[in-house]
Design a binder for these strands. Structure first.
Lengths: 92, 92
DNA sequence: ATTTATTATACCAATTTTGATATAATGTTC
DNA sequence: GAACATTATATCAAAATTGGTATAATAAAT
């Protein structure tokens, strides 16, 4: 079944408040958010996505909670949700 | 001193020929190229960049030759050349 | 309220990446 | 051509991530 929208919204509402306390947007939460949205868009649970990636549900949870993955793992995640990873170095 | 432009051009000329032989653009070479260009733009040698990253020159060479780094390492590279990593999942 | 589904966390072995050293290959300067 | 600078490759120990299991917490369905 698909991920309920208000669950994602609650996550998103938590994040900005937390991040505002620190006065900046943490990059690792930005990526985690990107992953969660991509998975929601694909209509998959963590368990279903883990199967497609050839890994386990806790591994997916860890990727979506701000841990820093390897590019290899990131690309496997993206492929499992039917997308590709696009990486740029931009002016900082 | 800055990286001679024709050295980079030679690299770029090698890459497309090699890649055309396989009929596609390998993502890891795409990232490697992005890194090399960013470093060239910052006017740094691998040794100088390694110092800024807090690592060694061979580690930088490995990053720029197609090996898959962790995000943490990628962010350290980007910060050392005065940039930020921008990661998107895009339709594939 | 109970059951089921989903997500999050902890721990540890296995695997992968980093970091350092040594050194080779290539290019530049003189 | 020699000296110097830059880049590339190999190897191995250390560090970090993955993968799996167990389990807890939360949410949804009944």
């Amino acid at each position: 079944m698909t991920i309920p929208f208000n669950e994602l919204r609650k996550k998103w509402r938590k994040d900005p408040k937390y991040l505002k306390a620190y006065g900046e947007l943490e990059p690792e939460f930005e990526l985690a958010r990107e992953l969660i949205m991509a998975r929601a868009k694909a209509g998959l649970s963590q368990k279903e996505l883990a199967r497609k990636m050839g890994t386990s549900q806790p591994t997916v949870a860890r990727l979506e909670s701000g841990h820093k993955p390897s590019l290899k793992t990131l690309e496997r995640y993206a492929e499992a949700v039917g997308m590709k990873v696009d990486i740029r170095l931009v002016a900082g």
